[in-house]
Design a protein around this nucleic acid. Structure first.
Lengths: 272, 272
DNA sequence: TAGTGGTCTAGACCACAAT
DNA sequence: TTGTGGTCTAGACCACTAC
C-alpha cells in the first residue's frame, strides 16, 4: 500500500527509505508530468479511495496523522488536500470527531441541489415535499439524452417521471434519465420503498454519489400535458430547468428536465 | 499603526513588547468576545482597509511578509486570511507579482455576474454586447425598492433602464436602482462616456465595488412594453431575474430587475 | 538577482467530542 | 484522559516575474 509514484518537489528532509531510483528523475517516457504539488497528488489518491468505495458515504475516514503516515507526508500536506475536498463538498470535517465522506442521505441538508425557494417563508416552513412518481421505465436513449450521458443512441436508460408538490400544490414536473447499466434494478417498486431524497437512494442502493451538477434554465410556455399535471392553464410561463449531474471524475450520471411553477416560488442563485 | 486589540489564542512565543495588561483577560465589560481565530481577525483588518479605500480596485496590496510584520503575526496566518479573501473574489493572487484588489474593470472576466450564455458557442463568440441606455433619472424609491436597498420609501434613487443586445438581437431589458447619495453624479451623459461594464464604472467613478449578489428567477409572460423592446410577441415567456448586489459589509447597493429572452440563450448555474 | 507567492515540514498548543 | 480537527509559528526551499 505504499504510494510510490508521489513525486515530491523537495525530498523529505529525513529520507526514510532511499527507495529504488533517484527521486528527481521522472518516469521514462512520461510527457513532462507538468509538476503538481504534493497535496494535489494526495488529493488524487484520496479521490481514488472515494471512487473505489474504500470509504462509503457517511463513513469516517482515517485521521490526518494516519493518512500522513500512510502517504509519508506531513500532516499539513494531508490537511491541505482534505481542505480542498471539503471545499468541494466531498468530505465533511467535524472538529473533535473526524472527517467523514459527504452524503445526500439523512444530512439535515435536504435538497442540496434544489434551488427553488418559496417567495415567503423558508424551505422548512413548506413542510416536506410530496413526491409522486408517475412512471419508471427502461427505454432506449434518444440522441440528445445519449449525448448528455455519454452513451450511444439506443443504449438503455431508465426514465423516471415525477411530480413534486408543496402544500398540496404541484410545483415541479420532471423527467430523469439514468444510465441503464448503473441503475439496473431501479423500478417503480424501488422508488416506492424509499420515499426520501432520490440522490440518497442512488447512494445506498446503487453506490452512485452525485458530486456536482450544471443547470440550464429557460422560460417556456406550459404545454398541454404539463399544464394538466401542474394544474395551471396551458401557456403559463414556467421555468425549464435542465440538470446534468456528475459523479466522481466528471462522469455524467443523470439528466433531469424539469418544469417549475414560479407563481409562489423562485429559483435562487448566489453570485460571487 | 500597531494593531492592538488582536486577541491571540496563544501569545507569540517571543513576546516582543509585554504591552499593558495581561493578554488573557478580555476587555472589561465585553460580552464574551466569542473567540475568533487570529487569521479571522486579520481578515477583518484587511477588509477594513479595503472598505476604507486604503487599497483601491486593481491596486497591489503589501506583501505577505510586510503584512505579517505590520500585524505582528506569522506569514502563515496572513496567508490564511488572504486565502479566504481570494476565495471570496475580493483579492487576486499572482505568483511572482503579488496580491491585488479584485476589480470588475479591464479584467478578462467581463460579465462576472451575468449567467446568460448562448445555446451554441461561447460568450466570446457572441462578440461584444450592445448596450443601449434608454433612460437615467432620479426618482423617489417605491416601497419595495426602498426595502431592498435599505432606504426609506421616498428617498432618492437613480433609475437606469437599458437594453442589451447580442448579434443585434435585443436580449435583456433591465432596470437598475441605485442609492441616490452614493451615485450623486450619475447621468445619461456619464453612462454614454463609459461604454464598458457598468460595475467597472461604479468602481472608477463612484468608488463602489460590488462584491456579491443574489438573484431570484421566475418565468413570466412578456408585457406590451417588454415585448416591443425585446422584439418578441406579447405573452412570450421570459426569465425575470431580480438581482440584489452588495458592496463590502453586506450593504446592498443595487437592485436590478431584468427580463431575459431565452430563445437562443439560457441561464447557466453550477451546483456543488 | 531580488522579491513575490506557493509548497512542505515539524512542532506546539487549543477547542471539541467521546470515554 | 485520549484522540480528533483547528490554529499558529518558524524556517526552508521552489516557481514565477521583473529588473
Amino acid at each position: 500500500m505504499k504510494p510510490e509514484g508521489l513525486t515530491a518537489k523537495t525530498a523529505p528532509s529525513v529520507a526514510e527509505a532511499p527507495a529504488a531510483t533517484a527521486p528527481a528523475s521522472p518516469a521514462a517516457g512520461a510527457p513532462t508530468p507538468a509538476f503538481s504539488p504534493l497535496y494535489q497528488q494526495i488529493k488524487g489518491l484520496l479521490l481514488q479511495s472515494l471512487q473505489a468505495g474504500e470509504w462509503r458515504p457517511g463513513d469516517l475516514i482515517p485521521s490526518e496523522v494516519e493518512l500522513a503516515a500512510r502517504f509519508k507526508v506531513s500532516q499539513g500536506t494531508v490537511r491541505k488536500a482534505i481542505d480542498e475536498l471539503a471545499a468541494d463538498n466531498l468530505l465533511v470535517r467535524r472538529q473533535g470527531k473526524g472527517t467523514f465522506v459527504a452524503t445526500h442521505a439523512e444530512q439535515h441538508i435536504q435538497y442540496r441541489f434544489l434551488r427553488l425557494h418559496p417567495d415567503v417563508g423558508t424551505l422548512d416552513s413548506e413542510g416536506p415535499a410530496t413526491r409522486e412518481v408517475l412512471g419508471c421505465r427502461r427505454v432506449r436513449a434518444s440522441a440528445d439524452v445519449a449525448a448528455a450521458l455519454q452513451l450511444r443512441p439506443g443504449d438503455t436508460v431508465v426514465q423516471v417521471t415525477r411530480v413534486l408538490a408543496f402544500h398540496g400544490t404541484p410545483t415541479i414536473l420532471e423527467d430523469l434519465w439514468l444510465p441503464g447499466t448503473a441503475f439496473r434494478g431501479l423500478t417503480l417498486a424501488t422508488l416506492a420503498e424509499h420515499p426520501g431524497p432520490m440522490y440518497a437512494l442512488f447512494e445506498t442502493q446503487f453506490g452512485v454519489r452525485m458530486v456536482r451538477a450544471e443547470e440550464r434554465i429557460k422560460a417556456v410556455a406550459a404545454h398541454e400535458v404539463a399544464a394538466e399535471r401542474l394544474q395551471v392553464p396551458p401557456g403559463t410561463p414556467l421555468l425549464s430547468v435542465e440538470r446534468l449531474a456528475y459523479t466522481y471524475n466528471d462522469v455524467p450520471m443523470e439528466l433531469r428536465r424539469g418544469l417549475y411553477r414560479t407563481d409562489r416560488h423562485h429559483y435562487r442563485n448566489e453570485l460571487s
